[in-house]
Design a protein around this nucleic acid. Structure first.
Length: 420
RNA sequence: CGGGCCAUGGUGUAGCGGUAGCACGCAGCAUUCGGGUUGCUGUAGCUCCAGUUCAAAUCUGGGUGGCCCGACCA
């Protein structure tokens, strides 16, 4: 893409009234626009990153047998009344947050989705009736609405956000456990591919309203809202909320083995048991002809929060440092005077082979501005083409993570991006 | 929801009772072209409602909105 046609502009200064690094850098770089507290629009650059993150999650979810679908935002109150989650008290038991609700023109109430256990369980009642239909694993990327008392930390705690939520439906506890572990592994692969692998821990946590315990995926960061304790040698992490003597004894570990860290909860998986299947009547016929409730689990990743976490974890004083796996473009070509023709040729060659390229062809921008913008936007590889480099038939290639550039023959640059 | 701070052109800010200023951006001209170049010209603004006052961006009260701390948090 030609940067001269990109409608977003970078900003030189941090936005006022934003404290969090992710909000400052994403707004300055033109990735997001804030509509109001906790509500953000994805601009073209931001959407590219967002789609890349979703692509990685999708691959991993498909890899463990997930099937993608898309459920509705508007929710039928009757269904939620059955599980006691329609009322404010019921919703509070769920996640402490009141619903967003709206009304039909008849005056009847509708819910605006904050999760989909009820919805999906109800849908499956018409499709699951035999042990032969199980297990099955459904997921979606869907906008969730949560009436947060206090939206904060930029895009990290939003009132409207896209979540990947997967729900597992298994015949038995054992079958459920097997998938639960497979999903935990998939989650670790996801965060590793997002560039957060070295600082993300599967963390023992409270199960909330559904079960005694659950697992969170916590990325170490000063921007985190959670406190976790880690025993690095044993690779065990425990959320502060369940860091008790009882739990420590149960896990056969000592308090002294742990260190305290701040962390961002980037993912969460938890057992649902048969709470919803029993309440809503999702039963299946066993081989022996008896009826049993389906064993369920729930698995979430907030896509926007993942994006914000990457920014929090991977940036420097100049801007964002995207990992190649999620970067909006793979290459940023900076054209300086005298390099126009060769830069254009290089751009065409890269585009032709499918390498996502941003060409800074803006007029009236000084070299300094171009470099500053490139650093802020954070594309992994920058190539400078100028009169100087063209004279030697070279391009100057610099990785965002490194300080020193390397000179590469112009005609060898396209191949550089097909190798990896 | 409790507490604190805050609200001025598109962006970042100054102004503290008496004609709203600066920087960035944007438009134009010239200049410059490897780390936000330089000069000139132009452009655009006081969150809302009430009150005090001869006079309010400025003081008072309230509303709305924003950030932070806490509470809360799949």
């Amino acid at each position: 893409m030609r940067q001269s046609t990109l409608f977003t502009k970078t900003r030189r200064e941090d936005p006022a009234n934003e404290e969090s690094i992710n909000a400052k850098l994403l707004i300055r770089g033109g990735f997001i626009h804030k509509e109001m507290a906790g509500v953000y629009t994805l601009l073209p650059l931001g959407l590219r990153v967002f789609n890349n993150i979703m692509g990685i999650i999708r691959e991993e979810m498909n890899g463990i047998g997930g099937q993608e679908m898309l459920m509705t935002t508007l929710q039928d109150p009757d269904l939620w009344k059955k599980t006691g989650r329609w009322t404010e008290e019921g919703a509070n038991a769920h996640n402490g947050l009141p619903w967003f609700k709206t009304k039909l023109s008849t005056g009847n109430e509708l819910g605006i989705a904050n999760t989909h256990e009820e919805t999906l369980t109800n849908i499956l009642r018409g499709h699951i009736s035999s042990y032969k239909d199980l297990p099955c694993y459904m997921y979606q990327f869907q906008n969730k609405f949560r009436n947060e008392l206090r939206a904060k930390s930029g895009i990290m705690r939003a009132r409207e956000f896209v979540m990947k939520d997967l729900y597992s439906f298994s015949k038995t506890e054992e079958e459920f456990r097997e998938f639960y572990e497979a999903c935990a592994s998939a989650y670790l692969r996801i965060f590793s591919r997002l560039g957060l692998g070295d600082r993300t821990y599967r963390t023992f946590a409270s199960g909330g309203a559904f079960s005694k315990f659950s697992d969170e995926f916590q990325t170490l960061s000063e921007a985190g809202e959670d406190i976790i304790y880690i025993a690095k040698e044993k690779n065990i992490a425990i959320n502060k909320e369940v860091f008790t003597d009882d739990v420590l004894a149960e896990m056969n570990v000592k308090r002294e083995e742990f260190e305290e860290y701040k962390a961002i909860e980037v993912g969460n998986i938890f057992p649902l048991g048969t709470k919803y299947s029993e309440t809503l009547g999702l039963l299946y016929r066993t081989e022996q002809g008896t009826e049993k409730p389906v064993v369920m689990g729930s698995y979430g990743i907030g896509v926007g929060r993942a994006m914000g976490t990457i920014v929090e974890a991977l940036h420097d004083e100049r801007g964002i440092v995207w990992p190649a796996s999620v970067a909006p473009f793979q290459v940023h070509i900076i054209v300086l005077q005298g390099g126009e023709q060769e830069a254009e040729k290089l751009y065409q060659a890269l585009e032709k082979q499918g390498t996502e390229t941003l060409l800074d062809d803006r007029e009236d921008k000084t070299p300094g501005e171009r470099f500053a913008d490139a650093d802020l936007i954070g594309i992994p590889v920058r190539i400078v083409v100028s009169a100087k480099t063209v004279a030697m038939s070279l391009g100057e290639l610099k990785k965002r993570t490194e300080k020193e550039p390397e000179m590469i023959p112009l005609n060898a640059i396209p191949a550089f991006f097909t190798q990896s």
